[in-house]
Amino acid sequence: MSTPQVLLALLASGARHGYDLKRAYDSRFPQARPLAYGQVYSTLERLTRDGLAEEAGVERVDGPDRTVFAITEEGRKSLHDWLDVVEPPAPHVTNALFTKVVAALLLDEAEDGLAVTYLRAQRRAHLGRMRDFTAAKTADGASVGAVLAADYALAHLDADLRWIDLTLSRMTALRQEVRP
C-alpha cells in the first residue's frame, strides 16, 4: 500500500485534518494494516514539502487547533499518475504458505506427516477467516468499503483453499519427488 497516495485520495474528496484522515482511512480500508497517527502526520509533512498537499487552514474541534490539509493540483496529477500504473502480478511465489509446505515436505517421514498436518490446519484457519469475512460483509450497516474489502479477501482465501486442496490431492507424488 502506498500511504502517501491513499492520503491524497482521501484528500481528493475534501480538505481534512490528520485525525479526520485517520478515521477516513480506518473506515475506507477496514481490513488493511492499521495506520498510526504519527504515520499520518509524517506523511502529510512530506506531501506538503513535495507540493502535493497544502495547509488549507486551522480548525478547532473540542480541543487543540488542528491544521487542515488539501490536495494540490500537483497532488491530483501525482494521484492520477499513480492510478495509471497497472500493478504487475507478482513474479515469484513468496507466500509463507507455499514455503512452509515445501519445508514440511522436506522433513516428512510419515505418510500423514508434517505437510498434510500443516495443510489441514491451514485449511481450518482459512475457513474460519472466510466465516469472519462473510459475517463482516453481511452485517447490518456494512459499508460498501467493508463489503469490497471482504470480497477481495474472500477471493484470495478461496484461491489458497483451492491450492491447499490440490496440494493435498498430489501429496503422494510430491513426497516421491522431494524424498525419492
Rank of each mutant, 00 (worst) to 15 (best):
L161G: 11
E73L: 10
P180H: 11
T117W: 03
F98N: 08
R170A: 12
E54M: 11
E59C: 03
T99E: 14
T67I: 13
E73I: 01
D65Q: 14
W163K: 04
D20F: 04
A36N: 10
S143G: 06
H80V: 08
D132G: 07
D165V: 08
L79P: 02
L35W: 13
L166Q: 09
E74R: 14
A12E: 12
E55T: 12
T138Y: 06
N95I: 14
A121I: 03
A121E: 11
L106H: 11
E73P: 02
S42D: 08
S143Y: 07
P34M: 04
A104Q: 06
L11H: 08
A125L: 13
M130W: 02
T99Y: 14
A56C: 01
D26M: 04
R28G: 05
A153L: 14
E45T: 15
E55Q: 15
R49A: 13
L105G: 04
R129M: 08
A56P: 00
Q122A: 09
R66C: 08
E177F: 13
G141V: 05
R131T: 13
G113W: 05
F69I: 04
E45R: 15
Q5T: 04
G57A: 07
T134Q: 12
L127H: 05
T72A: 06
A9N: 11
L157F: 10
L114Q: 04
K100M: 12
G38P: 04
E55P: 11
L35N: 01
A135L: 12
V102F: 07
